[in-house]
Lab assay of single mutants.
Amino acid sequence: MEVRTIKVFTTVDNINLHTQVVDMSMTYGQQFGPTYLDGADVTKIKPHNSHEGKTFYVLPNDDTLRVEAFEYYHTTDPSFLGRYMSALNHTKKWKYPQVNGLTSIKWADNNCYLATALLTLQQIELKFNPPALQDAYYRARAGEAANFCALILAYCNKTVGELGDVRETMSYLFQHANLDSCKRVLNVVCKTCGQQQTTLKGVEAVMYMGTLSYEQFKKGVQIPCTCGKQATKYLVQQESPFVMMSAPPAQYELKHGTFTCASEYTGNYQCGHYKHITSKETLYCIDGALLTKSSEYKGPITDVFYKENSYTTTIK
């Protein structure tokens, strides 16, 4: 009895394709271990004539594949690729409408935090270190965002349907971005203890939790000093293409032309909904596939993004 075979390709990165001759009487799992086709788990399936010449994702289970996976995804987590594939199996079914010149995501599976993050990423200057993220990001900007969303979920250790947080998501993504040249110098002034300067680099240099107003941050924000008295913390120097200011959701007025974009969060910790506000020729609110415009805006804002380049204080 002759062994019926077909020729397929296996890959971990969709760049390096490895030619395989597979036995049609055995499952993919018996031949390769966990195997995925377009995100779908085909591990328990036997090869079919229609699979001839198709590319299958496999887990990096030998040295060659491990090197290829690390170079593309910059992670050695053995569960990463499987999590990416199972997320992709959902995100490829989502709709990605162009809204006001940006790629958004039609609401499904509690994905409003991903839509808000995706919209924000198209408006701030950011370059990702893992080629996987950078490639998928370019495709997302062009309207094909399924891979990018699935990668975000995998890097953030999230599953489809789980509630997510924009600030946490951005923080994970910033860790995989090139923020080497970003720098922030802060000064804390206390009447009792004097003053202390701190220099922050990388992710810490672009994120701040405690106030939404970048102007206020430049002037000074009140913080408790270690001595128990009130101290003032203010920005001395900022070198970065953008800054992200966050605070627990509270009524906040966004003035046209003073910011790049913002995240609105309605609801409580267990259950809520994100919308995205962007400042173009007027203010726009993007909620999944829905767009509304207004000249002014007041609502429960939790993150505001500002364009920056270089700032030095005039406070002496």
Rank of each mutant, 00 (worst) to 15 (best):
L65W: 07
R66D: 08
K183Y: 15
K93R: 12
V12F: 06
A136V: 03
T278Y: 13
V22S: 08
H48W: 12
F128T: 03
K293L: 10
K92A: 08
M209T: 14
Q31D: 05
R184L: 02
V188C: 09
T313P: 09
P131V: 04
K54E: 15
H90N: 08
R184W: 06
R167Q: 00
T76C: 14
E52G: 14
E215G: 06
L17G: 06
D77N: 09
Q122Y: 01
C261K: 00
N187A: 14
G39N: 08
L163R: 15
V22F: 07
L133Y: 02
K293S: 14
T314G: 15
Y155C: 01
I15S: 09
A69Q: 12
G53T: 11
Q238V: 00
L153W: 04
K233N: 06
Q31H: 08
D287M: 00
T75Y: 06
K7L: 12
V42H: 11
F128M: 02
P249Y: 00
L118I: 11
Y311H: 15
H256E: 14
M24S: 13
A115S: 08
L173A: 03
V8Y: 04
G228H: 00
A69P: 06
V58T: 12
K280G: 11
T10H: 08
C190F: 04
G299K: 02
E204W: 08
I15T: 12
S79W: 08
T232M: 14
L118E: 05
Y113L: 00
F259I: 00
E2Y: 09
V58S: 07
A136I: 03
P224A: 15
T260R: 06
S104F: 04
T302I: 00
N268Y: 15
A262R: 00
L102N: 02
L173E: 01
V188E: 07
C190Q: 03
A231W: 00
L65E: 07
A142R: 13
I6F: 15
T27N: 15
V58L: 09
V221T: 08
Q196D: 08
K316A: 15
F305H: 02
T211R: 05
Y113R: 05
Y172K: 13
P248A: 10
V304F: 02
M244T: 01
C190S: 01
T120W: 05
Y306Q: 01
Q270L: 11
R83P: 03
K201F: 12
N178C: 09
D23A: 10
C285G: 05
A115V: 04
G143C: 03
S50T: 13
C271M: 11
A140K: 03
E204P: 13
Q270T: 11
K95F: 12
K7F: 12
D41G: 09
T292Q: 11
D77C: 13
G299V: 06
S246F: 00
G220V: 02
S25P: 06
V160E: 00
L65P: 05
K298N: 14
L291R: 08
S181Q: 13
V236H: 07
T192A: 11
Q175M: 09
V67L: 15
D23H: 09
T313K: 14
T226E: 14
N14L: 07
K280H: 10
D180F: 07
L114Y: 01
G194L: 02
T260K: 00
S310C: 10
C261N: 03
K191S: 13
Y84P: 01
N16Y: 08
A132C: 07
F128D: 03
D38W: 12
G194S: 03
T116H: 06
L81T: 10
Q30I: 12
K229I: 08
S213H: 05
D41W: 06
I315F: 15
K7Q: 08
F217Y: 07
T192W: 10
N147P: 14
T192G: 13
V304M: 00
S294F: 14
I286A: 00
K106M: 15
C112S: 03
E162T: 05
T258K: 07
L65G: 10
H273N: 00
S294P: 11
G39T: 13
M209W: 15
E125D: 13
P224C: 10
T313A: 14
A69L: 11
Q196V: 10
V42C: 13
P249E: 01
D180V: 07
I286W: 00
T75E: 08
V58W: 06
Q30P: 07
T198L: 12
S171K: 12
I15Y: 08
F259A: 00
I286C: 00
E281Q: 06
S240C: 03
F148N: 02
K280F: 11
A231Y: 01
H176M: 11
C271N: 08
L126D: 05
C193H: 03
K92C: 10
L254S: 00
G194W: 01
V185G: 00
C261M: 06
P130E: 07
C149V: 13
G33A: 05
I105R: 03
L118H: 01
V160K: 02
G194F: 03
E204G: 09
T5A: 14
N178D: 11
S25F: 15
A154N: 05
C156R: 05
K307E: 12
W107Y: 04
S294V: 12
Q270S: 11
N61F: 14
F80D: 04
F148Y: 02
C190N: 04
G210N: 04
G143K: 01
Y274I: 00
C193M: 04
R184I: 03
A146E: 09
G220P: 11
V42E: 06
F259G: 01
C112D: 04
K158I: 03
D287G: 00
Q134S: 10
N110C: 01
Y252L: 08
C149K: 02
G288L: 00
K298D: 11
F174W: 06
F128N: 03
K275I: 07
E204N: 08
H48T: 10
M85H: 06
Q30K: 15
K255H: 10
V221Y: 08
T211Y: 03
E162W: 05
Y234N: 06
Y84G: 03
E281W: 00
S104R: 02
N309L: 10
V42R: 06
M26W: 08
F70R: 08
P130Q: 03
I277R: 00
H273C: 02
M245V: 00
G257M: 07
K191Q: 13
T27S: 08
M244Y: 03
P241E: 07
K46T: 11
G202A: 04
S279D: 15
A40N: 13
L179I: 03
L290F: 11
P300D: 09
I45R: 12
V160G: 05
L151P: 05
S79C: 08
L283D: 00
C193T: 02
K183T: 11
Y208R: 04
Y252G: 03
A142V: 13
K307T: 10
E281P: 04
L151R: 04
A177Q: 03
Q270Y: 08
